[in-house]
């Protein structure tokens, strides 16, 4: 069971872990598998304000580039500097060491719109059909 039940998930394959008023986020195991070897991650700047659904980072593989969208609105409070030298952390540990950033939520109610693990797994199941 690779999709932790305490996480929330977006349709665009971001995971969200609530840490009080802040969330930590990354891309899902499914997303990293689709992308292949990640070679570079463009992270947002700390302090930057984002709105739910806006692009906040890009993840590059050798032959593709994908946008990562903000699952909630708020202010970027921390980014995963380790990805600068080791983008492969996303492939090796998408849900833990490969996290992208933390966001101080401006509207925690937005979390409600996200899926739980079971719904997300159903979602990706429908994609591979």
């Amino acid at each position: 069971m690779p999709y932790p039940s305490e996480f929330k998930y977006s349709k665009e394959h971001e995971w969200v872990k609530r840490e009080d008023g802040t969330i930590r986020m990354g891309i899902t195991e499914y997303a990293q598998g689709e992308l292949g070897d990640v070679v570079y991650v463009e992270l947002p700047q700390v302090g930057h304000q984002v709105k739910q659904g806006e692009g906040l980072a890009t993840v590059e593989s050798v032959k593709s580039v994908s946008d990562v969208f903000a699952p909630v609105s708020g202010k970027i409070s921390e980014v995963n500097q380790a990805l600068e030298d080791r983008p492969e952390l996303i492939n090796q540990s998408a849900h833990e060491q490969g996290w992208l950033c933390c966001i101080e939520m401006s509207d925690p109610a937005e979390l409600e719109a996200l899926m739980d693990a079971a719904a997300y797994q159903q979602h990706i199941g429908s994609l591979s059909e």
């Binding site: 070897d37 070679v39 570079y40 590059e60 050798v62 983008p87 492969e88």
Partner: peptide, 9 residues
């Protein structure tokens, strides 16, 4: 075959 991933990382 050459290692594209290493070249880009």
């Amino acid at each position: 075959r050459l290692d594209d991933v290493r070249a880009a990382r």
